[in-house]
Nucleic acid binder design. Structure first.
Length: 896
RNA sequence: GGGUCGCUAGCUCAGUUGGCUAGAGCAUCUCGUUUACACCGAGAGGGUCGGGGGUUCGAGUCCCUCGCGACCCACCA
C-alpha cells in the first residue's frame, strides 16, 4: 500500500476537516430552484432499459416528492447538547441526507432557542452569585444583559451541532428572538385579540414562588403523595351548631369566603343560607349550595377559598364571593392572613394553624389520604395556585379544529397511537396562560393606561407610548416560549418548503409543542404545519432507567463523540429503536457502530490495495455490448450476486426509511456491508480482481451508508484516489441503476447462493474435524467445477480436485458433503467419519419430522383448498426437496 | 378515575396486511493469525414468542381475558 492509511479508522483525525469540507462546499444549502433531477423513464435511453425490466425489478425507489423539509427543534442557545438531542438530530439528519442523495430538494432548517425560563434561571443564578438581583435593574437592562450572556455561549452549542454531523442549512439558521419570528408572534397575538380569542383576566394561575412567575398548566408536575385530610369544625352564627369541613390545606382557611354543600345533601339542607364563622379569623361567611361539593367526599361540606384554588375560584364566581389572598407571590403569608400569620412560609403557617385549631378543639378528625400535589417542573417546589391577572387564550376553538384535522388523518403520526393520545389531550384542553413574569423572552405587545384600558402595540422597545393624548405603559411580561415556538413552522421555512415534510421530535413535547404548532398553524394559515410527525422515545441508560443528574447516569454525547466518533454515536443511538419507544442505550451499541466504521475503513484500504493507486475510475455500467470498454462488467456468479444485493438493499432501505424504520434500515445496511460485501465479495475479489466492480461496489456502499455514517464515509471518499467531489452531495443516478440492474443475470445470482450453501456446509464440517489439511473431491458437478478455486479459497480446504471415480461414500476415509444438488466429498481419516455420520443421523431424523409435517399439511383438504395456490406449490416444492435430501442422507448412512 | 405503550434468546431489540425451519447485534463457547480489519475471520449453543381461552387449514401476528412493567392525562376539597 503506497498511501499510508492507518490500520484503524481514527474519527478524530477526520471529523473536523470533513465537516469543514461540507460547510465550505455548501452542500447543505436549501436548493432555491425546483428542477428535480429525475431521469427515469422520461429519457429515451432510460425508457428503453426500463422496458426490459420485470415489475419486480422495476425501480420504485426514487422519490417523487416535490420537496423534503425538516425543522430542527431549536436547541437551547445557552445550553449543551444532551443525548436526546443527539438522537433527534441523528434521525433528522439521516432523513435529510437520504432524501438529498435521492435527488429530492431538501431543506433542513436549524435553530437556536432563547429558552425563556430555562435560560433566565441560569442567568438569574449568576446575577445572584454576583450579589445582585433582578430588582436592581429595569426590564430592558435585564433583557440586554441576558442577551449578551447568551451570545457569549452560543458558539458552544453551534460547535456541538457540527460535531454531531448535522447537515443543516446554516445560512437559514434562526434564533427564536429573531425579528421575523417576533413579528409573526405579534401578528398572531393581534389577530387573536381582534377575534376575541385572547383575553386578560384575573384567574387562578399556577405560580412558581421560586421563580416568581406564572406557569402554563403543562408546566406543572403532578405527583401522587401521602397527605392528610383534616376535618375542621366551623361555628354557625347564632346557634351552637357546627359545620365540619374537610381540607388538605388548612392554611387556606384564613382566606375562606364561604362553605359549600351539595344542594342534594339532606344533612345540610337546613344550613344553606346560614353563616359560618371562619375559625381563628372570626369572619362571617355564607353557607352556600353548589354542585361542586361532593356529598360522598369527606364530610360533604367544603370550605371555599376563591383566591387559592381553581375550583373554589369558579364557585366564587358563581356566588359572587370575595377573594382574599392569604399567600403572596413570594410564597409567604400576606398581611390579609392576619398578624399572627403574615410573613410565615406556607409550611410554617400550616403548622401554626393546625396547632391553633387543635387548641380550640376544632380538629375533629385527621385522615391519611393519597392525593396529587402540583410541583414546579423546574425548581421541584410546590406550585401555588394564586390569583393573578394574565393574558389567556381561549383554546377551545383552536383545539376543536386541530382535533378535526388530526382525526381526518391529514397529519400522519409515527407511532400512530400518538394521534389518539393527542386528541384526548386536546379534548380537555383549558385556557392557556401566556404571561410570564420574567424579563427574558418576547415582550407581550400590550400597553395599559392608568385607567386600566389595554391596547395592542407592536413597538415593544418603548416602555411607554402615547396615543390620543393618553399615556400607555407596556406590559412587563413576556410570552410563554411555547407560544412563539409554536409558530416557527409558519415563519422560518424557506419558500416552497411548507408544509414541513416531517416533524421529528421527542414524544415528551407532543403536548407543549406539537399540539401548539398544529393549532396555531391552522389558525394563522389554514394549513397544517407538517405532513407527518415522527416522535422518538427517551434515551434511557444501560439498565433502562431514566437518565438524570441525581442518578449520575447521564451520558454526555460529546464525550462519546470524542472517544468513539460521531458516527459511532449515531449508529449506537439509532440501533434497536422504534418510533415512540423509549430505549436503553449503552456503550455496547456505540462500540458496534465504531466497529462498523472501522470495517468500512479497512474494506476501503483493501479495495485501494487491489485496484491500485493509479486506478482510473470506471465509466458507468457496461451493457452487454460494452464489456471491456472501461465500464463495470460482471463475470463471475458472485459479481452478479453482489450487484443484485446492492441494488436490492437500496430499494429495501428506501422503503424502510420511508416508513421511518431507522433501526431496521441500519441493520439491513450493516448486513450488506459486513455480511455480503466484506465476507463474501471482497474475499472473492482477492482472486478475481475485477477492479471496476470493486470500485463500483465500494462507492455504492459508501453512498448508501452515508446518511448513517456521514463522517467515515466522507473521509473514505476523500481518501479514495479515483473519486472526486463530495460524497455528501453525490446523488443516485437512476439511469445507471437501470443499466446495472439489467446486467445482473438471475441465473448467476442463484448459482452463487448455491455455492454459498456448499461453502458454508464445508466450513461447518471442517470446523468439527480435527486440525489438518483436507482434500475436497467433487464429481460431475458443473457449479463446483467452474468455481473450484473460489471454493478452495473460501472454505479453506487444502486441496480440491475432480474425481470421476464412483465414490458414493463407500470407503471409510471418504466423507460426503451433504448439500442439495452437490456431489462432493472430503478425504478424512477413517476415525472421524463415524462422528460426522452420527450428526447426519440427527439431521435425518429432524428432516423426517419436517417431511411428515409437510405431508400432513398437504393431505389436509382445507389447506389445499383455502391457502393461496402459490403457497401450496411452495410447500410441495419444499417437500420434494426435503425428500430427495433425506434419500441422499439415507444412502450415505446405508453405505457407510 | 381515564388513556397509551410494552412483555419474543443471557442482554437490547426486529418480526409490515396471519403463511416456508421465529431473526439481528451484543454476550457465551469452540477453532483460527489465510498477504484489509483481533475494532478480525470460521463455526456452535441458546426461544413451549408473559399465562389462559377463542377465531382460522394455519396465530409471535387478529379477538377476549388475566398477570406484570413503564409512561401520560385529570380540579376528589
Amino acid at each position: 500500500m503506497s498511501k499510508k492509511l492507518s490500520k484503524a479508522y481514527e474519527p478524530q483525525n477526520f471529523e473536523p476537516t470533513v465537516y469543514q469540507l461540507w460547510e465550505q462546499g455548501k452542500v447543505f444549502a436549501t436548493p432555491k430552484s425546483f428542477s428535480t433531477n429525475k431521469v427515469s423513464a422520461e429519457t429515451p435511453e432510460g425508457a428503453k432499459e426500463e422496458q426490459k425490466l420485470s415489475d419486480r425489478q422495476r425501480l420504485s425507489n426514487f422519490q417523487n416528492d416535490h420537496h423534503f423539509s425538516i425543522l430542527m427543534p431549536p436547541l437551547n442557545a445557552n445550553g449543551n447538547m444532551h443525548i436526546g438531542h443527539s438522537l433527534a438530530v441523528s434521525l433528522q439528519d439521516i432523513l435529510c441526507r437520504w432524501k438529498r442523495s435521492n435527488g429530492v430538494p431538501t431543506s433542513y432548517i436549524p435553530g437556536l432557542d432563547h429558552a425563556g425560563l430555562e435560560t433566565w434561571v441560569v442567568f438569574e443564578r449568576k446575577l445572584n452569585e454576583q450579589g445582585k438581583s433582578r430588582f436592581d435593574y429595569d426590564r430592558d437592562t435585564l433583557y440586554k444583559m441576558t442577551w449578551d450572556f447568551v451570545e457569549e455561549h452560543k458558539s458552544n452549542i453551534e460547535l456541538q451541532m457540527r460535531a454531531s454531523g448535522i447537515g443543516a442549512d446554516w445560512d437559514s439558521q434562526f434564533y427564536t428572538l429573531d425579528a421575523n419570528i417576533r413579528d409573526q408572534v405579534y401578528e398572531t397575538f393581534h389577530k387573536m385579540w381582534q377575534d376575541g380569542l385572547i383575553y386578560r383576566g384575573e384567574r387562578i394561575v399556577n405560580y412558581s414562588t421560586k421563580y416568581q412567575t406564572g406557569y402554563a398548566d403543562i408546566e406543572v408536575d403532578y405527583k401522587e403523595e401521602k397527605g392528610f385530610l383534616w376535618d375542621v369544625a366551623y361555628d354557625i352564627k347564632g346557634t351552637d351548631q357546627k359545620i365540619v369541613v374537610s381540607t388538605t390545606r388548612p392554611e387556606t382557611i384564613l382566606g375562606d369566603t364561604a362553605v359549600a354543600v351539595s344542594p342534594e345533601d339532606s344533612r345540610y339542607r337546613d344550613l344553606i343560607g346560614a353563616s359560618a364563622i371562619v375559625p381563628l379569623v372570626g369572619r362571617e361567611i355564607p353557607i352556600i349550595a353548589d354542585e361542586y361539593a361532593d356529598p360522598t367526599y369527606g364530610t360533604g361540606a367544603v370550605k371555599i377559598t376563591p383566591a387559592h384554588d381553581p375550583n373554589d375560584f369558579e364557585v366564587g364566581n358563581r356566588h359572587d364571593l370575595p377573594r382574599i389572598t392569604v399567600i403572596g407571590y413570594d410564597g409567604l403569608m400576606t398581611p390579609e392572613a392576619g398578624q399572627d400569620f403574615a410573613g410565615l412560609t406556607v409550611e410554617k403557617a400550616r403548622q401554626k394553624i393546625l396547632k391553633d385549631l387543635e387548641n380550640e378543639g376544632r380538629i375533629v378528625e385527621k385522615r391519611k389520604i393519597v392525593h396529587t400535589v402540583g410541583y414546579d417542573y423546574k425548581s421541584g417546589l410546590p406550585i401555588q395556585p394564586l390569583l393573578k391577572e394574565q393574558w389567556f387564550i381561549n383554546m377551545r376553538p383552536l383545539a376543536k379544529r386541530a382535533i378535526e384535522v388530526i382525526k381526518s388523518g391529514r397529519i400522519k403520526f409515527y407511532p400512530e397511537s400518538k394521534a389518539t393520545v393527542l386528541c384526548n389531550y386536546l379534548e380537555n384542553l383549558r385556557d392557556w396562560n401566556l404571561s410570564r413574569q420574567i424579563p427574558w423572552g418576547i415582550p407581550i405587545p400590550a400597553y395599559r393606561s392608568e385607567e386600566g384600558e389595554w391596547i395592542f402595540n407592536a413597538n415593544t422597545d418603548q416602555a411607554q407610548i402615547e396615543q390620543g393624548g393618553i399615556v400607555y405603559y407596556r406590559d412587563e411580561d413576556v410570552f410563554d416560549t411555547w407560544f412563539s415556538s409554536g409558530q416557527l413552522p409558519i415563519c422560518v421555512m424557506p419558500d416552497g418548503y411548507t408544509p414541513i415534510s416531517v416533524m421529528e421530535t421527542g414524544g415528551d413535547i407532543l403536548f407543549p409543542w406539537v399540539s401548539r404548532m398544529i393549532m396555531l398553524s391552522l389558525y394563522m394559515t389554514d394549513e397544517v404545519p407538517f405532513d407527518e410527525v415522527y416522535l422518538h422515545g427517551m434515551v434511557l441508560d444501560e439498565k433502562g432507567q431514566k437518565m438524570s443528574k441525581s442518578k449520575g447516569n447521564v451520558v454526555n454525547p460529546m464525550e462519546t463523540v470524542a472517544k468513539y466518533g460521531s458516527d459511532a454515536l449515531r449508529m449506537g443511538l439509532v440501533a434497536s429503536r422504534s418510533a415512540g419507544q423509549s430505549q436503553a442505550f449503552g456503550t455496547d451499541k456505540v462500540v458496534a457502530g465504531r466497529n462498523l466504521c472501522n470495517k468500512l475503513w479497512n474494506m476501503s484500504r483493501l479495495t485501494i490495495n487491489l485496484v491500485g493507486e493509479n486506478y482510473i475510475r470506471y465509466d458507468g455500467f457496461a451493457t452487454d455490448k460494452e464489456r471491456g470498454s472501461g465500464k463495470v462488467a460482471l463475470n463471475e456468479p458472485i459479481e452478479h450476486w453482489i450487484v443484485a444485493k446492492c441494488l436490492m438493499t437500496k430499494i429495501n432501505i428506501d422503503k424502510l426509511l420511508d416508513e421511518y424504520r431507522f433501526a431496521e434500515a441500519a441493520e439491513v445496511l450493516y448486513g450488506l456491508i459486513w455480511g455480503d460485501v466484506a465476507d463474501w465479495f471482497l474475499e472473492s475479489e482477492k482472486m478475481y480482481e475485477n477492479n471496476d466492480l470493486l470500485a463500483w461496489v465500494l462507492e455504492y456502499v459508501l453512498k448508501l451508508a452515508h446518511p448513517f455514517i456521514p463522517f467515515a464515509t466522507e473521509a473514505i471518499w476523500q481518501v479514495l484516489p479515483w473519486t472526486d467531489g463530495i460524497l455528501a452531495s453525490e446523488k443516485w443516478n437512476e439511469k445507471d441503476f437501470i443499466i446495472a440492474r439489467a446486467s445482473v443475470a438471475e441465473i448467476s445470482t442463484i448459482g452463487f447462493e448455491r455455492l454459498q450453501d456448499f461453502i458454508i456446509e464445508t466450513r461447518r464440517i471442517l470446523n468439527d474435524l480435527p486440525k489438518g489439511k483436507y482434500k475436497l473431491l467433487y464429481g460431475q458437478d458443473e457449479l463446483l467445477k467452474t468455481n473450484e478455486k473460489l471454493i478452495q479459497k473460501l472454505s479453506h480446504v487444502h486441496e480440491i480436485s475432480f474425481t470421476d471415480a464412483i465414490l458414493e461414500g463407500r470407503r471409510k476415509e471418504i466423507l460426503p458433503i451433504v448439500v442439495e444438488g452437490r456431489e462432493a466429498w472430503l478425504e478424512v481419516p477413517a476415525n472421524v467419519k463415524e462422528d460426522y455420520l452420527s450428526g447426519v443421523r440427527t439431521r435425518l431424523s429432524i428432516l423426517e419430522q419436517e417431511i411428515a409435517g409437510l405431508e400432513r399439511r398437504l393431505i389436509n383438504p382445507n389447506y389445499v383448498d383455502k391457502a393461496p395456490k402459490e403457497l401450496v406449490k411452495e410447500t410441495e416444492k419444499t417437500l420434494s426437496e426435503k425428500k430427495s435430501m433425506a434419500e441422499k442422507l439415507c444412502s450415505y448412512l446405508g453405505e457407510g
